[in-house]
Amino acid sequence: MKKLINNPTHVVDEMIEGYVKAFPKHVKLLPENKRSIVTAKETRPEKVGVLIGGGSGHEPAFMGYVGDGMADGVAVGNIFASPPPDPILEVTKEIDKGAGVVYIYGNYAGDVMNFGMAAELADLEYGTNIGTVLVTDDVASAPKEEKEKRRGIAGEFFVTKAAGAAADKGYSLDDVVSVAKKANEYTRTMGVGLTPCSLPQTGKPSFELEANEMEIGLGHHGEPGIEKGELQPADRVADRLVQEILNDMPIGSGEKVAVLVNGLGSTTQMELYIMFRRVEQILSEKGIEIHRSYVGSYSTSLEMGGCSVTITKLDDELMELVDYPADCPMYVQR
């Protein structure tokens, strides 16, 4: 493990320090916790607040997605560990403009407990209305019958995009929650891992794969997947990932989708575009129309190698929200 860091214990704090120094016009750190970041821009009164967060190590998710048209604030946890309630509460208080706050996070035991406690406390202590949207896009993480147990991975990008745009357009808290839930309902992700990452503090690879192996359905933190096997050509890998998604969520000819081919950390753009090429071929053969594409590292697992494919079905409302502009330090859309 070779990393450009100073001290493994301080990586998250130093990262955050660098981040807010790099984008002072976009984001600011709140005074109490060193893990609470909110937009530096004045937000409109009566705008629903959008709060995201989770463990760090997934950059640009989640802290990179604070800004116009996306989230108003983020609570940053240790690497691969949910933030505690404190920073979540601090962000909540700051971004509540009287219309309530929606919490969007991946469905992990730790996040559910910590955000859950924060939501209770926010209600108790500040009387803030909290809406909660759990992201459960990872097809590999549980069978279809237990969809509510599934975890959140790259698809959280689309859920945040929908909620952020809706809030900016003036939706009420309930409406932001419903449209974000719809976005989650319409979103599926399947990933493949090629090489592990390692936590700065242990230096150990998060999993082991042979030189010629890949793992389908590998978790966002290196959690074991559903199938190890020989590394296949990119087209075959794409076939598999898309097939799993379409089996789980059939999409008819003529329907519109947004697609995200997401790099897990050390995968080159070249590979992601080669993957996208095949994804596009499959969808267009089926008459499914790609309304908007995203290719790049949108949600990583430190320096893990591999990628995921996310497909979100778009109805008219979601299409408008996906097309809505955004201006965050790590993601801008015009």
């Binding site: 240790n78 560990a81 505690p84 730790g110 407990m113 910590n114």
Partner: peptide
């Protein structure tokens, strides 16, 4: 403990 770690075990 909770403030320092969050995570699953923090709340537990």
């Amino acid at each position: 403990f909770l403030s320092a770690v969050g995570s699953s075990v923090g709340p537990l």
